[in-house]
């Protein structure tokens, strides 16, 4: 069994700053990948992708125990489900950089005959993807199904899921939120990308999420918060803490504050970059802000 990054032992208790630097370097490259992929496809969702670059890097290179030799059923390994499928660029980059498929394939994003469809899918057989997502609100239920299967099989590994914040406006999320505590799914760790933005504006303008912490708590979840999901040290510490809450009879949700567009100054904090592609000049400007650490695709 080969785990993807042996240089980050799973059991370490203290946060090693060298490892944090290493993770930050990977996240830099992931950000370059995102901007270049969306530019080359002339479509896609850079805002939320950039905001979650640190999270997915931490998840795949530090937090999760997983195999890059892809197996759909994933028995004995941690699984991840992306519910907000439109941030596919960040996931594709992290999967490729982890070794699930060749980094060169990132160049095919959104192009005819690609495995890297606009929204993630199993249909073309891309390693690392276990369900199609894009139509919002469905991924949490799917993650619950996978977590239930692990419980049935006595498999102690964890199921992770990421949802957007605007996505929480979908009713199915709350069906799922009610289900998981009732069934004591304490092998399920959900993160909400709480960047406060969605296509038509801020969450508060479109449909306020209100007391998000109180809502999840009232549904029976163990609720944690990460104040800055674009700070790698805080992120790793927060996710480790959340991991430690597993196995205690409740599912765990992490409300992760991020900045849409994080890492590219002209994209940051605005809903305007939710779903538009940067042009050549904007891409060049973004590249000056992002270090090429692992070699571009």
């Amino acid at each position: 069994m080969t785990y993807c990054i042996p240089m980050f032992p799973m059991c370490q208790k203290n946060i090693n700053m060298a490892n944090i630097t290493e993770l930050e370097n990977i996240a830099q490259q992931v950000r370059r990948d995102i901007v270049r992929m969306v530019n080359q496809a002339n479509s896609g969702h850079p805002g939320g992708s950039l905001g979650c670059a640190d999270f997915l890097t931490a998840l795949y290179f530090e937090i999760m125990q997983h195999q890059t030799k892809f197996n759909m059923e994933g028995a004995g390994e941690d699984l991840f489900f992306l519910s907000n499928g439109h941030i596919s660029p960040v996931w594709y980059s992290v999967l490729a950089r982890s070794g699930y498929f060749p980094v060169s394939e990132l160049a095919t994003f959104r192009k005819l005959n690609t495995r890297l469809q606009g929204h993630p899918t199993t249909h073309e057989g891309l390693p690392g993807v276990r369900i199609a997502s894009g139509s919002l609100g469905q991924g949490l239920s799917v993650a619950i199904g996978a977590a239930l299967a692990k419980k049935m099989d006595g498999d102690n590994s964890t199921v992770y899921a990421l949802t957007g914040d605007g996505e929480l406006q979908e009713g199915q999320i709350w069906e799922a939120a009610m289900f998981a505590p009732h069934h004591k799914l304490d092998n399920l760790l959900v993160t909400v990308d709480w960047n406060g933005q969605q296509i038509d504006g801020s969450n508060d303008q479109v449909l306020t999420l209100g007391d998000l912490r109180g809502k999840w708590k009232a549904f029976g979840w163990d609720v944690l918060e990460i104040k800055d999901g674009n700070n790698m040290k805080q992120l790793v510490a927060g996710m480790r803490k959340a991991k430690n809450q597993l196995g205690k009879g409740k599912p765990v949700v992490v409300l992760m504050r991020t900045q849409m567009g994080a890492g590219v100054d002209f994209m940051m904090g605005s809903h305007k970059w939710h779903g538009i592609a940067p042009n050549a000049a904007q891409t060049a400007a973004a590249m000056t802000q992002l270090k090429e650490t692992l070699g571009d695709f």
Binding site: E73, G137, G139, V142, A146, L148, A149, E175
Partner: peptide, 23 residues
């Protein structure tokens, strides 16, 4: 057996997740 309650959308998603894991 999984009693899902009156939440059919969630049931379909959970079924998809169970199937992913080989059920």
């Amino acid at each position: 057996f999984v009693q899902v309650g009156i939440a059919e959308a969630n049931m379909m998603g959970i079924a998809a997740g169970l199937a992913t894991a080989g059920k």
